[in-house]
Write a protein that binds this DNA or RNA. Structure first.
Lengths: 155, 155
DNA sequence: ATTGCAGTACGAATTGTTTCGTAGACTGTT
DNA sequence: AACAGTCTACGAAACAATTCGTACTGCAAT
């Protein structure tokens, strides 16, 4: 009896631990669905489940159910990706993570997995697809110049 | 009766269709594990399951079982991601898809999901993390200059 | 010929993510 | 007070990706 209790106590401890680790990991790498929701919140600020669900259904062809979005967002709160204000009946959700840092993390992982860590490779590939306007190109070039100057100063 | 047959006929058709699409889709978007294997094959040319498995276990901390790699690679053959030579007992596997085109596809999806389609945003973010050497920066700048020239010619 | 090793094939468990049905709570309207 | 509409909570199914155990095959050394 006592023994059984011990075991289940340890088991719970371990489950909490792995949960914690998983949450930590997911802070850096939201899933695809999670990212979609974050994007909406980053772009438009705090919102209700319904409005987000409607927005998502506008952009995608596949209708996504209301409770699906709800559940996902509830899980995201648990994971620490979102915060919510439950003071009124319809909860208001907000992103709980920084856009920049999440995107940076995703980018880092992407570069490492897909371009073996070479950011330059990625940049060349991205630019090679002419997906940038003239203004954007100029901006990028300016950034590069600035970086080169910084590098020289270092020496 | 006839009606039921019709339905099941249609159902099968649809299943085949979605299978086909899924395979098609996975041609563009290998999973993480699949990508790892492709990277090895792209970098080193054709190889056996064992050698790939050993390579993967060198780079990652988590030991990955031999049959796991085997199974994954078998599935990849089915999906058309790999080819294999079964003429001798130990099969030799090779990538069946082009490195460039796969990476381009992944990049496109990544930009669209993470940077709302703005390649420039992605480039700035990547460069902002100073993950490129001086030579690489110069190369990138050269590419941009070339692109700007091309743009001007178009007008 | 037997034994042991290295290989393939394949079913099935596990894990992670998405999706949805259903139940119950609150709110405003009749 | 009852109804309709809108919301949350939550279990569980469906789906996708990974992992592995086990069975079987061929081959080489004894």
């Amino acid at each position: 009896m006592f023994h059984l209790k011990r075991v289940s106590y340890l088991k719970n401890l371990r489950e909490e631990t792995t949960d914690f680790l998983r949450n930590k990991r997911n802070m850096n790498k939201p899933t695809e669905g999670e990212l979609e929701i974050l994007q909406v919140l980053w772009a438009n600020g705090p919102a209700t489940v319904r409005s987000i669900n409607e927005l998502l259904n506008l952009s995608t062809q596949k209708e996504i159910g209301y409770t699906t979005t709800l559940k996902l967002m509830q899980l995201m709160v648990e994971k620490g990706l979102l915060q919510r204000d439950t003071s009124s009946r319809t909860h208001i959700y907000a992103a709980a993570v920084e856009e920049q840092s999440i995107k940076r993390g995703l980018l880092k992982q992407f570069v490492s997995k897909t371009f073996r860590g070479s950011a330059a490779q990625l940049v060349m590939e991205a630019l090679g697809q002419h997906q940038a306007s003239g203004d954007e190109l100029a901006e990028i070039k300016a950034l590069i110049n600035r970086m080169e100057n910084d590098k020289n100063k270092d020496i």
